[in-house]
Amino acid sequence: MSSLVFYLLTVAIFFCIYSIYGWGLNLQFGLTGILNFTYITFVAIGAYFAGVAALQPGNGGIGGQYILGWHLPFPIPPIIGGIAAAILALLVGYVGLKRLRSDYLAIVTVSVGQIVWTLIGNITPLFNGWDGLAGVPQPFNSIFQLDFNHYQWIFLVICILFAVLGFWIIERLTHSPFGRVLRAIREDEDVAAALGKNVFRYKMMAFVIGSIYAGVGGALTIAYIGAFNPSGFTTMETFIIWAAMLVGGSGNNRGMILGAFIVPVLFNEGTRFLPSTPGNPLLAVSIRGMAIGLLLILAARYRPQGILPERKTIFRLDGLQQGGEVGGDRVVPQ
């Protein structure tokens, strides 16, 4: 296989995965106005739990220290990853979502990100510490027995299936009465509460569902790469997804696809060829981080609604059973 095809396949796979990440974040922020500044931690929890669900039992030796090791076949690890991320979201949401001000959840998420990162690194028996998990089996490849290059095609198909399902679900939710309540909460929590909506509960649902997207995306990532460690979920990773959402269009799932294409591809791939100086091995990474930060600020400044802004909902009114004359007898519409 030519290296160009290989490269394009990799890009396509990450494009699918970033779209999935993005839809979850978009549900949280774009639709509901929830600030999750450590979205990548939910990705990581999904990845780790999916990883240890798919791996053989750990041998307890070097590189083999991890929990579970259930050796489960493919569609199950992503489900476990999604559930794990959802449980973390429940805990975090319980602490952070009850407060009225959005800063509090943001503070809680920043803190949770730090803590989870430190704990996963330091407590080796969980997920093999700073070295992380490796050798996670590729989905279905025990059946196909393909080499990595050809296996790419299989994995792309898997990712596309997940992305299509994920898009279908998120679109339905966005354009349902549920999505409407979330947007009402985003605009004004008090109004939503005054209309009888349990704001905490709805925010929690949005937070959890969004985190499931993160977890499943993480599960796909570890299934693809086969490995995962704490350097895979740094703060910068969260903000690549944020930038993708803001650039593509927050509140618009199609815009999110666009953003998932533009930002990660452009930034990860575009800055890959920056020179790495011997004195500063992380110069390219640093410049990438600066660029993402700058992009966030500029997007917020000049086009906070994104390239594809949230679409206006227009109801079709033909064929309605209407209540007759204005000011007629029936004042309270039935």
Binding site: R183, V191, L195, T313
Partner: peptide, 18 residues
């Protein structure tokens, strides 16, 4: 509310539908 608190980025009809 005394100072009207419309849901700004929802349409008039959506405000009603909430």
């Amino acid at each position: 509310f005394q100072i009207a608190r419309e849901l700004q980025k929802l349409t008039v009809l959506e405000n009603m539908m909430v």
